[in-house]
């Protein structure tokens, strides 16, 4: 069914195929699948930002190295993925906490922009280390979810066909589980209370005896674990893995976090979905925007949010009494 053909006039610059239902649904599904990965990256950004007030630009690269480790352990050594993936996540959590304690905390005490430079430096270093150890050629990643061409539910037979891959559903379920566990941890445990108290008022948190430094390490550990998970899922989605796996994804994650307000967990999830949909629908709708411009869309989202609503959709505007 082509809706465009029912219109009495032609719409310039608009892709005809956009008015086919199957095609649009397929784009939405693709957008929401990528969006779930962006949401995970946005969650990592938010978890670090809420307590420390800074962004970890190396979050994506930390995920990439975790994902490459999974590849080495499982594909090269034959260890099953259900061991290698949790092991890589656990290891990256430890590394995240150690990096926070040894590199970020001493620099942060001196104030200023030091932390931003440290995380940017980490970004470049980890990226280079990945290339040195694993080489620059893409490899076939570990796929925790079924990844054959036929592993999908066909919902509307085509052409054009509308189908949902099993792996896409797997990514959505993973995101839901991560959000659920995070909610339980933050809202229902003593550790989570300590984390939220530090986010709300760091000095008062110290004054009731909460070890603030350890809560900052906890934030980095959680973010690193989620980042590695995001990288594993994204490599399954693209079917190819190299040292640049997450270089663009972190930008989409930052856009999603900005959209959600930088300090809101639901905001990160909705932000991820919106950024994924924008990335998938806008280039398809306007034929003059090629898919190579899709990264620009992420930057447009960031700038638009900062201009129109700096606190994001779900963020709270900071009220300071003087």
């Amino acid at each position: 069914m082509n809706l465009l053909q029912t219109l009495p006039w032609a719409v310039p610059g608009v892709n005809d195929a956009f008015f086919d239902l199957s095609y649009v649904l397929q784009l939405v599904t693709t957008g929401l699948a990528n969006g779930a990965v962006y949401a995970l990256m946005a969650l990592s950004v938010v978890i670090v930002y809420r307590t420390t007030g800074h962004m970890n630009f190396a979050q994506g690269e930390m995920g990439t190295i975790g994902c490459l480790l999974v590849f080495s352990i499982s594909v090269e050594r034959g260890v099953p993925y259900w061991i290698s993936i949790p092991a890589a996540i656990a290891l990256s959590m430890v590394v995240g906490a150690v990096l926070q304690r040894t590199l970020v905390q001493p620099v942060e005490r001196r104030g200023g922009m030091g932390v931003v430079l440290v995380t940017l430096g980490l970004f470049l270093i980890i990226n280079a280390v990945d290339a040195v150890i694993w080489g620059a050629d893409p490899v076939t990643p570990v796929t925790p979810f079924p990844s054959e061409a036929g592993d999908r539910f066909i919902i509307l037979d085509g052409p054009p066909q509308f189908a949902i891959r099993y792996s896409t559903i797997g990514i959505w379920i993973t995101l839901a589980v991560v959000v659920g566990l995070l909610w339980l941890l933050l809202q229902r445990t003593r550790l989570g209370l300590g984390y939220r108290a530090v986010a709300a008022n760091p000095e008062s948190a110290l004054l009731v005896g909460i070890p603030k430094d350890r809560m900052l390490m906890l934030g980095w550990a959680l973010a690193a674990g989620i980042g590695t998970l995001a990288a594993v899922l994204f490599s399954q989605k693209t079917g190819s893995l190299d040292f640049n796996l997450m270089a663009a994804v972190i930008l989409y994650g930052l856009a999603a976090a900005a959209l959600g307000g930088f300090d809101s967990i639901p905001g990160a999830v909705v932000g991820g979905a919106v950024v994924g949909l924008v990335e998938s629908l806008v280039p398809a709708f306007f034929s003059f925007i090629g898919s190579e411009l899709s990264l620009v869309m992420a930057l447009v989202v960031i700038v638009a949010v900062l201009l129109v609503r700096p606190q994001g959709i779900f963020g709270k505007a900071k009220v300071v009494r003087v």
């Binding site: 300590g194 939220r196 108290a197 986010a199 709300a200 009731v208 005896g209 709270k316």
Partner: peptide, 22 residues
């Protein structure tokens, strides 16, 4: 502390729970 220093985003009850953190 001066200026109360409560945790504004936390509920009253969570503020009190945080007071008993240790």
């Amino acid at each position: 502390p001066q200026g109360r220093g409560t945790f504004p985003e936390l509920s009253v009850e969570e503020n009190l729970d945080a007071g008993a953190y240790l």
